[in-house]
């Protein structure tokens, strides 16, 4: 496998507040990449900068060999870098079917619409039962499924999931984890932020600990890592 995303020396933030300090990472060499670390230390900011929602102050982001640092979110979606943000707010008054057509909005995704819809129905059969239902009437787990399904409709070449299981009941969470595994087996590389370390270890051979707005530790495949070690990275000693 080859590197698909490279982030180098990235500095970004909101207004005068800098959240990311000289952060570097890469994704794709070993398959899926997991990001973990305490809340409020820049994981979501990193992902928002990668997908173009936030402008980088300095540093560079390279996707598939091309510089995308200054590109608009639309251009980045057009390249197949798809971001599912945290908190599944989505489009409350649209139906699931509407969300799926929106997912296939970019010219790159449109020719694959029918094929991707089949894929979505296979991965999330629950959604097919409620195709005409409005998003606001769905449960948190179902909304998260719709978010991920919408991203799949965009025909991703790299899929970013920001805390997909946040706030879900354990049973729904297991179901969703299985779906994410299935997506990964389908050949789409993932970048996943997740608090559930077991799930992350299972899914991602390569891990980054993001702390104080930068990568504090990188864990490569082959490096054995104990749960307790990660816990101590999280909480200090």
């Amino acid at each position: 496998m080859s590197v698909i995303l490279t982030v180098e020396g990235l500095t970004a933030g909101y207004g005068r507040v800098t959240v990311l300090h000289d952060l570097s990472m890469e994704a794709g060499r070993f398959g899926n990449v997991g990001l973990f670390g305490p809340n409020g230390h820049g994981k979501s900011t990193l992902l928002r900068t990668v997908s173009g929602l936030l402008k980088a102050k300095s540093g560079s982001i390279t996707f598939d060999g091309e510089d995308i640092t200054r590109e608009s979110p639309r251009a980045i979606v057009g390249r197949g870098l798809i971001h599912v943000p945290q908190g599944n707010r989505l489009f409350p008054d649209l139906s699931i079917a509407d969300c799926m057509s929106l997912g296939a909005f970019s010219p790159r995704a449109r020719p694959h619409e029918a094929e991707n819809r089949e894929k979505v129905v296979k991965i999330f059969p629950k959604l097919a039962e409620r195709w005409r239902q409005r998003v606001r009437t769905l449960s948190g787990g179902e909304r998260q499924m719709v978010s991920i399904a919408t991203a799949l409709m965009s025909h991703p070449r790299l899929l970013i999931l920001d805390e997909p299981t946040l706030g879900l009941a354990p049973k729904i969470k297991d179901e969703l984890c299985a779906s994410v595994q299935e997506i990964s087996k389908g050949g789409v590389p993932l970048i996943v932020v997740e608090q559930d370390i077991e799930f992350l270890l299972e899914l991602c051979p390569q891990l980054y600990l993001v702390n104080h707005g930068t990568v504090e530790t990188e864990i490569k495949p082959g490096q054995s890592i104990e749960h307790s070690e990660i816990m101590s990275m999280y909480f200090g000693h």
Partner: peptide, 23 residues
């Protein structure tokens, strides 16, 4: 229409609209 759908979507969530590639 898909364009009409896009207008309705922007009304509901701007960030999510950008992330599906709407202008």
């Amino acid at each position: 229409t898909r364009l009409g759908l896009a207008l309705r979507a922007v009304a509901q969530n701007e960030d999510a609209s950008q992330l599906v590639g709407l202008n």
